[in-house]
């Protein structure tokens, strides 16, 4: 049985509108006018226990609103919702003990104290006894490679260490369902990789269900087989990540540094030339052509350096939209 069931979820917000200028300000002061904004429209999906699902969409698409409905922070305007056998908006103790929400930039730990102190508070809140607390902290510290960091004041930690400590605090009660909103935002590549590895092992170890939003494609490709794509409040894709990439991002970005400048016409035979500045080249190459094109290019051109990257998620979503809705 699914651990998350959302049916026809809709969320409408009133947003105050104000005309510019003094007149607008005065009328705003005395008589506010509101416009109804549909942040989430008729979204339905199910997630099975133990699944790791990527939740993608551009800024303002409705990801965070959906996560807040799933955790019970906000009421859906219509539709039904069941998470871990409970109605989230009731926020009953049994439900709260089974879930967690991590919002990338929202600080939970007490800034001037060592993280261990904040963890003790969490342990008290969730009724975890001392021995069990020590065991869990030890286990999670190992998984996150955070040894000796927990006794330093939080403000002295690097951004990556702080994010890991936040994760530790959010997972101390061993939730079965994790809602993660941009858990790697602002982290350097190494820290991103270690957070990703941790989430993967947490999922394996505790058979936890994870719904994760991220702007970094690498987070999603490393962790999620399945993705939900949301745009302007509507769910436009629910399925395997590979199928989405094949369909909407069947190309790779190739960056070259050459020994000497080459004519654009000579580069065009290997792929679409996106930019050519001096000895720096940016090519777009179809995935199926990638191996062939790269080996041809390496043998024909004086290449000093070569990097292959995925197109940014925003670009893929942009493409999904220029190609029309897919569901």
């Amino acid at each position: 049985m699914a651990i998350i069931i959302a049916e026809h979820l809709t969320k409408v917000y009133p947003v105050a509108i104000k005309a510019p200028g003094l007149r607008g300000t005065l009328s705003h002061l005395f008589k506010r006018q509101y416009r109804q904004v549909e942040a989430v429209k008729d979204v339905s999906f199910e997630i099975q226990p133990g699944e790791m699902v990527g939740f993608l969409g551009p800024n303002g698409a409705g990801k965070t609103t959906t996560l807040k409905m799933l955790t019970g922070l906000i009421h859906p305007s219509s539709g039904t919702l069941q998470v871990a056998d409970a109605l989230p908006f009731r926020r009953e103790r049994a439900f709260l003990e089974k879930i967690t929400l991590v919002m990338g930039q929202k600080q939970q730990l007490l800034w001037d104290l060592p993280a261990l102190d904040s963890l003790r508070i969490n342990a008290a809140v969730y009724g975890i006894d001392d021995r069990e607390f020590q065991r869990r902290v030890g286990e999670l510290t190992d998984m996150l490679s955070l040894a000796d960091k927990l006794t330093q004041p939080v403000r002295k930690l690097s951004l990556g260490e702080r994010m890991k400590a936040e994760l530790l605090a959010a997972l101390l009660h061993q939730p079965k369902v994790l809602f993660l909103d941009e858990p790697t935002l602002g982290l350097d590549v190494n820290a991103q990789v270690s957070v990703r590895e941790f989430l993967h092992s947490y999922n394996q170890h505790f058979d936890a269900t994870i719904l994760l939003t991220s702007h970094y494609m690498a987070d999603i490709t490393a962790l999620c087989d399945r993705v939900l794509l949301i745009h302007q409040g509507q769910l436009i894709y629910d399925g395997a990540l590979d199928a989405l990439l094949d369909r909407f991002a069947p190309y790779r970005q190739v960056q070259l540094e050459l020994e000497r400048p080459v004519l654009a016409a000579d580069l065009a035979r290997y792929g679409e030339v996106k930019s050519l500045v001096g000895r720096e080249v940016h090519l777009i190459i179809h995935r199926e052509e990638l191996t062939r094109s790269i080996s041809a290019l390496l043998s024909a051109l004086p290449v000093l350096d070569l990097t292959i990257t995925d197109p940014p998620i925003e670009e893929i979503i942009g493409r999904v939209f220029s190609d029309g809705v897919v569901l």
Binding site: G72, L73, R91, R93, L96, L101, M103, K106, V125, Y126
Partner: peptide
């Protein structure tokens, strides 16, 4: 918001 998700 995160505080509201704790059972206290």
């Amino acid at each position: 918001s995160p505080r509201l998700l704790q059972p206290i």
